[in-house]
Design a binder for these strands. Structure first.
Lengths: 342, 342
DNA sequence: AAATCGTAGGGAAGCGGTTCACTATTGTAG
DNA sequence: CTACAATAGTGAACCGCTTCCCTACGATTT
């Protein structure tokens, strides 16, 4: 691999001049610039990033930390979309993306490897469960950070999220407008990120508009898996006044709920409406096609990255939590309840 | 951030000694070693990777190149699993993982950014369509490389794949054993990686064992999307002797086929058996649950990474193409044909 | 004609490590 | 008691690049 000295020699200039050409510094004559450019081209020169990083404290690398428990696959396509969004914006800006999926508890953490070691100019953390991330390490490293999928309403963090409150609000309102008055909710694990709280509150807000409250008897918990949706549904169906609609906090659990309903001899949507969340790719082929909330994970990744880049260049220094709109997608799994007796 | 001089000063030794402790070089007394270790701990020292890379030509970074067309989402969970496998082994070995998803044609290619620039010690390429990868750049960069999902039967490349031949063979044999004699095949795009060819050949081999050949009239092509499966199925059903079973080369197309069959008033599996490939996560909740071939993408990623690491350390210099076993998963979408008249 | 300024380019230090070549100390064999 | 090897530790060059600080020189100003 050619280095800057080779280029300098071939162009008969000093390395300083080559460096100036590289960084578009003025005070290089057009003729010289051209000679240098030609030499770089001839030698297939590409500056060594390690060397550059050493002088610059600037590596042109962004880190993604996904504290992802291998056995707890939460909503993978979602992750991949986020990553794609990040990578897209990063590479547009000549940044590379370093990926880490280990948890806090893992032996070889990403924290040493790329926070302390000065390997990244900034990090994007993708949050799933609470407490998986070593916030302390992140903070002391002093590396700029943006979080995707986490919202701290204080001022202490930069984050990008879908509007969970709004999502749940719209789902619930949709069901209410269809005439449902007994709405079951299958929530995610309680140690989950704020998203779940937000969604619960959004649902409550919609219920309140109809003079209703969230019936604790109709609230169940799952862990986002299909099976958990299946199992959480059973008790709900055995209430004195069983729900005519179920809002599951992700699509998988909604699928489980549909399965259970079918097993119990209920027809979806005529006997029971079911709504999910996320709009995972296969949602549209499930029978019946699932009504759900679509989020825009690639967009979240993009916006998070743009924000991170502006933090790195110090265009921005303020903390902000950016909330992206969601979209209610009405499909075949919701309908008016069979007997709208109320 | 503390550097090696700070540590040396605190431990009252030279930087050479610190470096020796770091790399476990012998000829450092236990007492000194301990003092250095303590100093490192006290200062929260972590060696700067850029500096290390500069002297070493060794960055402890692996690149993943996925020439992934955003609009052509092929089998995402599969990718994510591969990445997870790679990341897992990499971080176990104190390597980090640099990710690139751009295509060859993209403006800011990963090739400059991390091949030429000396940013990675090795690359893993995840292949989807042919021709998306700049083989030339990869070769001239001289960086060790392992490919996942590509097989060159010459000696020129290191690769890790599922056994596509075997997969298709087992699917076909399964159908034949059930009594099917007219088997439709929905293949992937012809410019696809070898996998498709292998699968076709595997299917043919099984047919031959039963004295049959692949009927060109029963061969259709899709692009791996659900829709393409749907549309490819229609003409097959209108043949003089329509197939009693369809083997789709991925699960999505199989879903499309099931949809089409249902639309045509056929019951799956009694009127038409359908098999997919990949065993995507939702396969098991589709109604009927899909018979398919399970691959082990995380395993593929792991093995590819292990191989890459051994290429980097020059433990190995030989090319090899590693083929991993697959597994036939029989579920509800296949059954004996209604009239086994032959 | 001298002083000043803007432009073009170069010399060399320094970023944070690693490693080669070297010195000093101790232990052991002849 | 000397010679020599093994062990413990150091000094300084070097990796490739950026950047601060200089110098040179022609053009402009006074």
């Amino acid at each position: 691999m050619a280095n800057i000295y080779d280029v300098a020699r071939l162009a008969r200039v000093s390395t300083t001049t080559v460096s100036k050409v590289l960084s578009n510094t003025p005070y290089v004559s057009e003729k010289t610039r051209q000679r240098v450019l030609d030499a770089m081209h001839e030698l297939q020169y590409s500056p060594n990033l390690a060397a550059r990083g050493l002088t610059n404290n600037h590596t042109y690398v962004l880190g993604i930390i996904i504290p992802h428990d291998p056995d707890y696959s939460f909503r993978e396509p979602f992750f991949l979309e986020i990553i794609r969004g990040i990578e897209n914006v990063a590479s547009m800006n000549d940044y590379s993306v370093l990926l880490s999926m280990s948890k806090k508890s893992a032996q070889h953490t990403p924290y040493d490897r790329f926070l302390r070691a000065g390997y990244v100019d900034g990090v994007i953390t993708v949050e799933t469960l609470q407490g998986q991330l070593d916030e302390h390490e992140l903070t002391i490293s002093g590396v700029p950070r943006v979080s995707v999928g986490y919202r701290e309403d204080g001022q202490a963090i930069n984050s990008v999220n879908g509007n969970d409150w709004q999502g749940a609000y719209e789902v619930t309102k949709h069901l209410l407008e269809l005439g449902h008055r007994h709405i079951g909710v299958i929530s995610g694990p309680t140690n989950f990120i704020q998203a779940i709280d937000e969604r619960l509150q959004g649902a409550c807000a919609a219920l309140e508009e109809y003079g209703l409250t969230l019936d604790p008897n109709l609230l169940a918990y799952g862990d986002f898996s299909i099976e958990s949706g299946f199992h959480a549904t059973a008790p709900l169906l055995h209430r004195d006044r069983p729900p005519t609609a179920i809002f599951a906090m992700n699509d998988r659990m909604a699928l489980g709920a549909i399965d259970k309903a079918r097993e119990a001899g209920l027809h979806v949507p005529s006997d029971l409406s079911v709504v999910g969340y996320d709009d995972i790719p296969l949602t549209s082929v499930i029978d019946p096609p699932l009504t759900t909330i679509r989020q825009f994970p690639a967009e979240m990744g993009k916006i998070a990255t743009q924000r991170l880049l502006s933090l790195i260049t110090r265009e921005t220094t303020q903390f902000a939590s950016i909330v992206l709109p969601i979209e209610l997608v009405v499909r075949g799994s919701t309908a008016a309840p069979a007997f709208s007796k109320e």
